[in-house]
Write a protein that binds this DNA or RNA. Structure first.
Length: 1040
RNA sequence: GGUCGCUUAGCUCAGUUGGUUAGAGUACUAGCAUGACACGCUAGGGGUCACAGGUUCGAAUCCUGUAGCGACCA
């Protein structure tokens, strides 16, 4: 006797049990096996900044659905899990925390200590995140878990950087960054806050050269930047200034002459004087203007600490705000000051130091996106081609356009970050330092020195045993040597050289000066005579202190995780991966870059398909985020509804639309009442709520860092998960019921033609459903998967088939057959449910294994020991039988009509109703055959059907296309109420009829519409006419 | 500012190449302890498909505009 199933599904029990079981079986692990068809996915690695929220639950559920499904289909399914180090985000979170707790900055700690602390943070969150994924049921290959900063990924990063450097795709250039003058680092946009601040709005004038008494006026909020002006700008259509464009003005403070230029994007003729000063090195808009007008040049006037540098002439050394006062005073004194007004100005502040951000031009590393000089496509074009020619497909298709639009700009990618947490750039820089007196002409001497320097560095590396193909030495400007290498050996050698002090002493060494400057400063340079044997040395050999953009390492993820650059069997077997599942906000940041590096390193795309899923918003239409505190922890949902319900909910909301709303309630920890989350609760502003139903206080759910010892914290829930929970319980109970009736079960082969109608019907529906689910998965239409599964299992199998089967269960003659079909259909449902609801499926599978170990269609077989590794269901197409489906549908219509009458007239469920049906002989014969079901399902007593039935007195009637149904109601009718209801129905029908008539009377319609549509309309017309006649007749009868 | 989307029942969402009387879940109403399930069963009410034009024999669906919302980019 099989173990009796509990009355309700207990998700917690199932989760604990099957997670351990699947671990034991290593369900997610796959080995490279050329004899199998691979199906592979790499996880979009969640960053280790914090725990996962519902968005991640969605993303990972969908990946798991695909992996579980393909595994069942017999593919060698490999899903690589892992996490991302998320450079700036993680470093900033950890730094903030250290500052809060210890009042120390990263400079107090030092690079090594800070990085050590971040690793500790990472260990903690990686564990938490991987734990959440496991709880979610992710059947990933845990043995291959990766981290973007682990040695395997690091190797791929160094190798890629080296190759790109060698091939000329990486260069050093300038870019405006948000500069924090206190911490002396650049910060990203999301680490700044913009606040309205009291400031000034000064107006000055510059004299136009060669035009006495002509001035050009402009206003600024930062007068000190005048020191770095390289142009003034007007709108090309501005009549006031048309004549002045091309003329020069003088900056009175420094005497520099700068041009008046026209730029429609920068100058707005309707604002102020219509003229603006242009300081490309210190303002983003001006910088953009410079990119359009590079001839104006740019001048950096700031030191990293916020003081004015030597470009500022006599203002050099002054703090930026002191310089502002000095500059204003000087302009006033010179007579070029026109006025000042006080204004509120939006200013960017650094999140961490709270100082005002300075836009600063600084040296950065870039990856070149543009096409190559030899005319071949560059990285961006290669990645675009992969999508336009279909090697990579987007689902939904429309997302391809945002990918293409963004790549089409081919903007170079700034890959350096002034951070300490990340992959350090594998480039060593040395200055060529010169000593001695130079006698030849400058150019020739310089070239010789440069060549000697390169040769010496090469010789050194060769002597250390490093192949010349493992490093690249590049000369930048006159005196900077760069050496890029990916091998650890070369790295070590350079590290050693870094501490190597040149022992030679030269005549008149000028320490610390780059060669160009040094040469110029050597007295008597022009007429120098001695040709010293060696007049230079290296200095300052050191590794670049910057780290790479996080996306640089994530971009390699689809091949680095399989071991690239080593030619591993995994790489060969699983690359390119099958599909990338991600959200739309990182199509540009990440997807595009993965395609680029995949093509560059592997010569092939990283994935065949990109599925871009819905974004989950809160009940107010706002995206969930950690800072808003409106994210929901999937573990809350798992706790309240179970993992299967969470996953079902996730899959159900994965439609083709962009967003999906998720109104959330706090579940009162005392009484479990749902208290809706309100907008004012956001940003964790509300620390305490009182339950309106039990009046006890609690803390609303949110990303709190610690438990509150005073108040219990609410879990957050949403009724959108109830559907999945209820469905799981429904399937559980259907199984329970079937198992209760499987005593004496004997397996046997099934052949539909010999089966009764209801069996043939459910098999036909099963085939249709299984095919539909397979097709939906194939096309990444996830929501349809749950819909088909739900509708078939609940509305057809449970509501109709099981009900119809109840009779045969008690009938010794029919029992064996119905048991086989019940077990077989249930077996298929469990398999179809496995990808979406694996815990439930495994539970049902195991129970079914006890009661009916040999089962399934068409030939029963011994079921495997886990549903996760069993075959995906497929059935003979000929089992689909539209004839059966029509017959059962007609019966369902009849049953519903009778039930409706019963409900409407409040007839007790136990009272049998007498029903007669007037219809064609064929239909009557069919109803006669189905009579046992009709009487059972609709609670019918006497049932008569034939073409010559007449409507009894005092009967409810309903006309359909195929039959007229009369339900005798002797004395139960309230004539007035019935007339009212029927009249409403009549009005609806008449409206429909009119519409249909109009269509059919329209000559164009009849002429142009397809034959099938016209036929349909004609049938509808006949149908409606019949129904209207019947309704009128009934109404008249009731009124009389 | 540019680009891509969204707006269908009180709520959350489906709705395929334009073609029957626009569907589901939930909420609501009524009835029901029916030998699987109240996380249930049986029914019912509820929609001018954001708005305004246009194309078409025919529009929730295609086009244009307006309003509101979202995301990305600048």
């Amino acid at each position: 006797m099989p173990t009796e199933m509990a009355k309700a599904y207990d998700p917690k029990e199932a989760q604990t049990k099957w997670l351990a079981y699947w671990d034991e079986l290593a369900v997610g692990h796959a080995e490279a096996d050329p004899s199998k068809k691979p199906f592979s996915i790499v996880i979009p690695p969640p960053n280790v900044t914090g725990a996962l929220h519902l968005g991640h639950a969605l993303n990972n559920t969908l990946q798991d659905v695909l992996i579980r499904w393909r595994r069942m289909q017999g593919y060698n399914a490999e899903w690589i899990p892992g996490t991302d180090h998320a450079g700036i985000a993680t470093q900033s979170v950890v730094e903030k925390r250290i500052f809060q707790e210890e009042k120390k900055t990263r400079h107090d700690l030092g690079r090594e200590e800070l990085v050590g602390r971040i690793w500790k943070w990472k260990e903690q969150y990686e564990k938490r995140i991987l734990g959440q994924l496991r709880e979610l049921g992710a059947s990933a290959d845990w043995q291959r878990t990766r981290f973007t900063l682990d040695p395997m990924c690091a190797k791929a990063v160094r190798e890629t950087f080296f190759r790109m450097f060698r091939d000329g795709y990486i260069y050093r250039g300038k870019r405006l960054v948000n500069w924090d003058t206190q911490l002396q680092t650049s910060v990203s946009d999301d680490e700044t806050t913009t606040e309205d601040t009291n400031g000034g709005f000064w107006t000055f004038k510059y004299p136009v050269k060669g035009m006495p008494d002509t001035f050009i006026r402009f206003s600024t909020t930062r007068p000190e930047t005048m020191l770095g002006d390289t142009a003034v700008c007007v709108h090309p259509s501005d009549e006031r200034y048309k004549a002045l464009v091309g003329k020069m003005v003088t900056i009175p403070l420094v005497g520099r002459e700068i041009p008046i230029i026209a730029d429609a994007l920068l100058a707005d003729p309707t604002l102020g004087t219509g003229c603006v000063k242009v300081t490309p090195a210190h303002d983003p808009n001006d910088y953009a203007c410079w990119t359009r007008n590079p001839q104006i040049g740019m001048i950096n006037i700031l030191n990293p600490d916020g003081t004015i540098n030597s470009e500022g002439g006599k203002y050099a050394g002054l703090d930026r705000f002191k310089a502002r006062e000095a500059v204003v005073a000087a302009m006033e004194e010179l007579g070029f000051f026109e006025g000042k007004e006080d204004r509120k100005i939006p200013l960017k502040y650094s999140d961490r130091s709270k100082t005002i951000i300075e836009p600063l031009l600084s040296d950065q590393w870039f990856v070149k996106m543009t096409d190559r000089d030899d005319g071949k496509p560059g990285l961006a074009q290669m990645a675009m081609d992969a999508v336009t020619d279909g090697r990579v497909k987007f689902f939904p298709e429309r997302y391809a356009s945002s990918y293409l639009d963004w790549l089409g700009e081919k903007r170079d990618w700034c890959v350096s970050r002034q951070l300490w947490w990340g992959h350090r750039i594998p480039v060593w820089t040395a200055m060529i330092q010169v000593g001695g007196i130079v006698d030849d002409d400058y150019e020739a001497k310089l070239k010789k020195i440069q060549q000697s320097a390169i040769a010496e560095l090469s010789d050194f590396l060769t002597a250390t045993g490093i192949s010349s193909s493992d490093y690249v030495i590049e000369l930048d400007g006159e005196a900077t040597l760069r050496c890029c290498t990916a091998t650890e050996k070369a790295e070590k050698a350079l590290q050693a050289l870094q501490s190597y002090k040149e022992s030679c002493l030269f005549e008149k060494v000028v320490p610390g000066k780059p060669i160009g400057q040094a040469l110029r400063e050597v007295p008597g340079f022009e007429m120098a005579t001695s040709a010293a044997a060696k007049i230079w040395s290296f200095s300052d050999l050191k590794q670049d202190s910057d780290v790479l953009d996080t996306w640089f390492s994530s971009a390699l993820w689809p091949h680095s995780t399989f071991g690239w650059p080593e030619p591993t069997p995994e790489l060969k077997h699983f690359y390119p991966t099958s599909v990338l599942v991600t959200s739309r906000d990182i199509i540009t940041l990440w997807v595009a870059r993965m395609v680029m590096t995949g093509l560059y390193n592997m010569g092939d795309v990283p994935f065949r398909n990109v599925y871009v899923h819905t974004k989950i918003l809160d009940g107010f239409g706002e995206g969930m985020s950690k800072s808003k505190g409106n994210g929901v922890d999937p573990l809350d949902i798992i706790e309240l509804y179970g993992t299967d319900a969470l996953r079902f909910g996730m899959v159900a909301l994965a439609t083709e639309t962009q967003d999906s709303r998720m109104p959330v309630v706090n579940i009162c920890p005392h009484c479990s009442a749902g208290v809706p989350v309100k907008q004012e609760h956001m940003y964790m502003r509300t620390k305490k709520l009182t339950c309106p139903s039990c009046k006890k206080p609690f803390r609303p759910g949110g990303p709190w860092l610690a438990e509150d010892p005073e108040l219990p914290t609410a879990k957050q829930g949403s009724d959108r998960f109830e559907m999945g929970r209820n469905f799981a319980n429904k399937l559980w109970n259907a199984t329970r019921f079937i198992l209760m009736n499987l005593e004496g079960y004997t397996p046997a082969a099934i052949s539909p033609e010999s089966l009764p109608i209801e069996d043939r019907w459910i098999l036909s529906r099963l085939v249709t459903t299984a095919n539909a689910i397979t097709e939906s998965l194939d096309g990444f239409r996830f929501s349809e998967v749950t819909k088909h599964l739900y509708d078939f299992s609940w509305s057809e199998f449970c509501d109709w088939y099981i009900e119809m089967a109840k009779g045969r269960m008690k009938d010794p003659a029919g029992r064996a057959g119905v048991q086989q079909v019940l077990a077989g259909v249930l077996d298929a449902i469990v398999r179809l449910a496995q990808p979406v609801m694996p815990f439930l499926a495994e539970s049902l599978w195991q129970s079914l294994n006890e009661a009916a170990p040999v089962r399934g269609f068409p030939e029963p077989t011994k079921a495997g020991n886990t549903v996760t590794q069993t075959a995906w269901p497929t059935f003979p197409a000929m089992w689909q039988d539209t004839g059966m489906e029509t017959r059962i549908a007609r019966m369902q219509e009849l049953v519903r009509i009778v039930r409706d009458v019963r409900n409407r007239y409040m007839v007790d469920g136990k009272t049998a109703l007498n029903v007669s049906v007037k219809c064609g002989a064929e239909v009557a014969k069919d109803f006669e055959a189905l009579k046992p079901f009709i009487t059972l399902l609709a609670g019918v007593g006497e049932f008569k059907t034939s073409p010559d039935q007449v409507k009894p007195k005092q009967a409810a009637s309903q006309v359909t296309a195929d039959f007229e149904c009369y339900v005798s109601l002797e004395g139960l009718i309230d004539p007035a109420a019935e007339v009212k209801r029927l009249e409403k129905q009549l009005a609806d029908k008449v409206k429909s009829l009119e519409g249909t008539e109009k269509k059919l009377n329209n000559a164009d319609f009849v002429k142009r519409a397809p034959e099938s549509v016209i036929t349909e309309q004609r049938e509808l017309l006949a149908d409606l006419t019949k129904q209207i006649a019947s309704l009128k007749e009934t109404i008249a009868e009731l009124k009389s």
